[in-house]
Amino acid sequence: MQKFKWQRIVLKVGSALIAPDQDGCRSRYLLTIAQFIVRCRAQGIEVILVSSGSVAAGSHLFPEQEQRSVTMKKAMAAAGQTEMMAMWDRFFDFPSAQILLTHGDLRDRERYTSIRETVFTLLEHGVLPIINENDTVTTDDLKVGDNDNLSAMVAAAADADALMIFSDVDGLYDKNPNLHEDAVLLPEIESIDESIYAMAGCATSAVGTGGMKTKIEAAEKATSHGITTYILNGFKEETFNRLLAGDNPGTIFTPYEKPMQEAVHWMTHTANEQGEVVVEGSINESSNRENGCIRSDEILAVHGEFGVGDTILVRSDDGTRLAKATANYSSCLLSFIADNEQSEFSEKMQDSIGPVVSEKDIALLEKS
């Protein structure tokens, strides 16, 4: 590994690699990935595995149905998860640990911190963390939805150096290689913009839930935290040999030169806003940074219900998303102040309370 100097990496393995025939787990492709993990650990590199495939692994245990209900998929995930963990565990002569997450776990700051501490403790004791979304208990409100984005959130939480997304594609092409013979593989992406998203086609796998778009979303989350991200073909043994030789066999997304701080990154890419406050103009135009980022008298309206410490969206009166931030006060109090702006009592309250959002607890949004 002359070219890549990793200390901690996150590997995301897609469902098509776990259960390529949708009839249970198969070692056909996983053995090569497991050997790669063993060789990385032998070189002192810490590894975290985000493994999809519980639904695909458990589907063969249930009667074939044309349309699978949500409840049926949850049952498949519950049964398939144990089979998948058993498969991974057989490959290693070191211990592994199962961590099942929902978006609700990740977007709650206290639980997010607990997850970080657990992962760090496992790595410190030489245990391989194997992470998957908890499909059995998750709901639409709590669902990440795809393990590409989950792997990026995990990589950020774990302060990883690199995120490797293994699937059934070689990397990002300038056009869909299944439709265009002249499609060109892009070896390196320095920045992610709308033109990069425009290159993303539909999912090429009949097993997984994520396509190229979700992989680019994951790369955007990870690179903004300073994490080098790869999209790689996990079906080819050559992929792993080239990585170990220091070559790039797929597409590499270079990280930000100035990565987001951990707390700001969590607020931007992981936490869901519980409500929103509307201000006039932009953050820079409307805020008094000597007293905090946003004052109560700058709020035009309050939408949704949130409490102290919840993540909220700050937007301008023209609809532009300006920032995500931690609320210092509840929506109830702020709504009262905004609705009674001209009253004497409201003016006294505005003078007595501190900033609605403090400068240290805000993440500016570049995109509207």
Results as ranks from 00 to 15, higher is better:
F4D: 05
G210T: 00
S205N: 07
L179W: 10
E257D: 10
A77E: 07
V70Q: 10
A158S: 15
E190T: 04
L49M: 01
T139G: 08
L150R: 09
T228S: 13
G275V: 00
A363R: 12
S296R: 05
E194T: 00
R39K: 14
K367P: 02
G275R: 09
G104A: 05
I337E: 02
K73P: 00
D361S: 12
A219L: 04
I353P: 03
Y197H: 09
I45F: 04
K258P: 00
D318C: 11
N340Y: 00
V302A: 03
L333T: 06
S195Q: 14
D161M: 12
K258R: 08
I196L: 11
A16P: 12
F92R: 15
A160L: 00
A16F: 09
D146M: 03
A200P: 02
R8D: 08
D159C: 08
T268Y: 06
L322F: 01
G171L: 02
E117K: 15
E341M: 07
R295T: 01
K348N: 09
E359R: 15
E285A: 13
L322D: 00
F336N: 00
G145C: 08
R111E: 03
N288Q: 10
I216S: 13
G292N: 03
L101C: 07
A271W: 07
A198G: 05
L128N: 11
F36D: 03
T138L: 00
S191L: 12
T113R: 15
S151M: 11
S224L: 10
E280P: 00
Q43W: 02
H225S: 14
A219F: 08
E359G: 14
A157Y: 08
T138C: 05
F253I: 11
A206Y: 08
K360D: 01
V127G: 03
C332V: 11
A78M: 01
D168V: 00
A19H: 13
D170M: 04
T82L: 11
E280M: 15
A219I: 00
F36Y: 13
S51P: 11
N340A: 02
M76K: 04
M72Q: 12
R242Q: 12
M72W: 15
A162K: 01
T320M: 13
T228V: 10
S296A: 14
P20C: 09
N291S: 07
V38E: 15
V184Y: 07
I299Q: 07
I312K: 14
A338K: 05
V144A: 13
S224W: 03
I353F: 13
H269D: 05
T251D: 12
Y256Q: 14
D247A: 11
S151N: 03
V10E: 02
T139V: 08
E66G: 13
N147M: 09
I337V: 05
A34T: 09
G53D: 15
A325K: 13
N233S: 12
A222H: 04
S368I: 05
D140S: 07
K5P: 07
T113I: 12
N340C: 01
H225W: 06
G250V: 06
V207K: 00
L179M: 07
Q43M: 10
E66L: 06
